[in-house]
Write a protein that binds this DNA or RNA. Structure first.
Lengths: 182, 182
DNA sequence: GTCTATAGGGTGATAGAC
DNA sequence: GTCTATCACCCTATAGAC
């Protein structure tokens, strides 16, 4: 069983994804994590500290995921697109934390820290894709396709029955043969 | 000056985008719309009625935007990608309403109506793009690139200084020459 | 049609026991 | 380290005046 702090962050993530930012109360997070409200506030002194803790986790996981993109046996693009698509989010992986943090983004001053953290994830992913593709525009296109699937994951829209990630990757490979080596 | 009902929906949209779903209270919406709380509740009997009203507006604007995609002089793909990118959201257009509605999406039963409405927008856009491109996978790729830019718009991440929508469209045209006419 | 006043319930955070 | 009890605040929605 993970320590209490990680259990709290896991519960916070799950509540953000399943019930939305508005429904996330300290009571609900504490109950889902299996601690009392007082116990929760021992680990995170305020609701803002809770979101700051999630942003720290996001940055850690983004760095780890950038490494995973670079070393994926299936190739960087295939890994990025697959993990962005609905159903591709692994527990403990970046995607799940990212989806949770997206629910915190707004135009307020507090939201600025959230948007900064999301920008770091964006830059990490782009850099990892460009390392394999050696082509800035192509790397950006690949990232945007993945991000488009991310938006679908966020809204819960399933993939069309006749079109899947495989068709997408095949076509992308056709347009851009692997690794044009500068 | 638009009627009170539309002013309320405009204010609701703006608050959702600028301050997030959590900060949207009936008081705040009423104040931003220039009516009293009682006046607001005359037009929308509850907070749920307010979100239902925004979903109706989303569906109306999605149908209008699908027509705009089909008749855009710059071409369907260029129009879709341009209006999805940060800064491309026109006041009174689909994109702004879409961004607002995204803030309402969650996994709850109430969120199901939101996700259904977003799925309709997705289907409308895809159909309009496919009408021009005559190629399901290519149409989907173009939509996903636009949706990736949408995600950037949502998170407030600006476009990279050295890469812009123009570069993106040029490359996409190179990969897929316009209108392969069945 | 639009407003004020108010009821009733839930929320973040603190104090202090164990 | 974790808990219970409690406070002050804010929110939605209703009732009813104008």
């Amino acid at each position: 069983m993970p320590n209490a702090r990680d259990r709290v962050l896991d519960a916070y993530e799950t509540l953000l994804i399943d019930h939305g930012g508005a429904a996330v109360t300290l009571d609900a997070v504490a109950a889902a994590a299996g601690v009392s409200k007082g116990g929760l506030l021992y680990h995170f002194a305020s609701k803002e500290a809770l979101s700051t803790g999630l942003l720290d986790r996001l940055r850690d996981r983004s760095a780890a995921d950038a490494e995973a993109i670079r070393t994926a046996p299936e190739g960087a693009v295939a890994y990025y697109v697959r993990t962005s698509a609905p159903g591709g989010a692994a527990p403990g992986g970046l995607t799940r934390t990212y989806l949770a943090v997206l629910r915190l983004a707004d135009g307020t001053a507090a939201g600025q820290a959230v948007r900064d953290a999301l920008a770091v994830v964006d830059a990490d992913g782009y850099a990892a894709l460009r390392d394999e593709l050696h082509d800035p525009v192509l790397a950006w296109l690949a990232q945007l396709v993945g991000d488009g699937l991310y938006l679908r994951t966020l809204t819960g829209t399933p993939l069309p029955p006749d079109l899947g990630v495989q068709e997408l990757l095949e076509r992308m490979r056709r347009y851009a043969p692997t690794d044009p080596q500068t």
